[in-house]
């Protein structure tokens, strides 16, 4: 186990460095810079700004400096938000996004998996059709449509939940629903198909032939085998949901991290682009590591040390 973790840690570092390199190169390959605007700045001002943010240095030096900064967990100052550091931007936005994200992931797991199981057990009967109909809707309808529909129905017409901002627990409900619509539906479908496959396996027949009650057949024997594809999907899902969604946070006017993903690129805010990308990649890589560890627990055939 120790050796596995060390090896994984090294490969994670390499991945992060590759991510930094690619983002850095791509970012600088696009014409324009952070201080390019419609109204051209006086040459002296632009010069001074470039000087201040070390944009006059040769690219390789900017790159090396940046990598060294990242190694000290310093993601640099934001070019766009005066006096803000990228670390600060993430610290401000991440808690909101994470809160929403955790709730969405919990909702996804607590509803998606049971729905998938029910659907598989009642294959081709009405519960299955209902769940699969909803799940297909959830997968195909984009979240901004879900979000605006939810706002229209629950906030405007029924006025039971607020339309925007975070004031109390009620304000979480609509964004969480909008955010988990897709993943919840996807997990239901995934659980259903995986469960159906496992239930047709010979070893399930063996368990039934032992006279084991059906609930144990399902929860002890079938689910543990059927959950593997779901675990695979949940890792990246958590990373994606917790780092915030541009669309949902925009619509509900939530001060999360999602908006930075898009805004930093249009603003050509070099450090923020880099910072957010690195943060997301690191998160994703850690989640994938967790998925692998969970794999090892759920399925004894997967040996992590080999």
């Amino acid at each position: 186990m120790g050796r596995f973790l060390i090896r994984r840690f090294i490969s994670m570092l390499i991945t992060i460095i590759l991510v930094i390199t690619f983002t850095f190169v791509l970012m600088h390959a696009i014409p324009g810079g952070p201080f390019t605007a419609e109204k051209k700045l006086p040459a002296a001002v632009e010069e001074a700004l470039n000087e201040r943010y070390h944009l006059n240095d040769p690219l390789w030096k900017q790159y090396v400096d940046y990598v060294l900064d990242v190694a000290r967990f310093d993601l640099g100052p934001s070019f766009q938000y005066e006096g803000q550091t990228v670390n600060r931007l993430i610290e401000d936005g991440f808690p909101t996004s994470a809160k929403l994200g955790i709730l969405s992931v919990l909702l996804t797991l607590c509803i998606g998996i049971p729905f998938g199981i029910i659907s598989a057990l009642k294959q081709n009967k009405w519960p299955d059709y209902t769940v699969m109909f909803l799940a297909t809707l959830g997968v195909t309808i984009p979240n901004f449509v879900i979000a605006t529909t939810l706002i229209y129905v629950f906030a405007v017409k029924l006025s039971v939940f607020p339309t925007f901002g975070i004031k109390n627990w009620q304000s979480f409900i609509l964004p969480v629903l909008a955010l988990s619509g897709y993943s919840l539906s996807f997990i239901s479908r995934l659980t259903r198909s995986s469960m159906l496959e496992v239930l047709g396996q010979d070893y399930i027949r063996t368990v039934r032939a032992k006279g084991i009650p059906e609930y144990k057949v399902i929860f002890k024997h079938a689910l543990r085998n059927a959950i593997l594809p779901v675990v695979t999907y949940v890792g990246p899902l958590i990373a994606a949901i917790l780092t915030g969604s541009f669309v949902v946070e925009r619509i509900f006017a939530l001060p999360g991290m999602g908006r930075h993903f898009v805004q930093s690129i249009t603003n050509r805010d070099y450090t923020t682009i880099m910072g957010i990308t690195i943060f997301y990649s690191a998160f994703l890589i850690i989640m994938i590591l967790l998925v692998d560890l969970v794999y090892g627990i759920v399925d004894p055939r997967i040996k992590l040390d080999k």
């Binding site: 010979d202 070893y203 399930i204 085998n225 004894p300």
Partner: peptide, 11 residues
């Protein structure tokens, strides 16, 4: 059962 390779729960 017929196929011992698949008749035991792998986990």
């Amino acid at each position: 059962f017929q196929d011992p390779m698949t008749s035991l729960n792998p986990v």
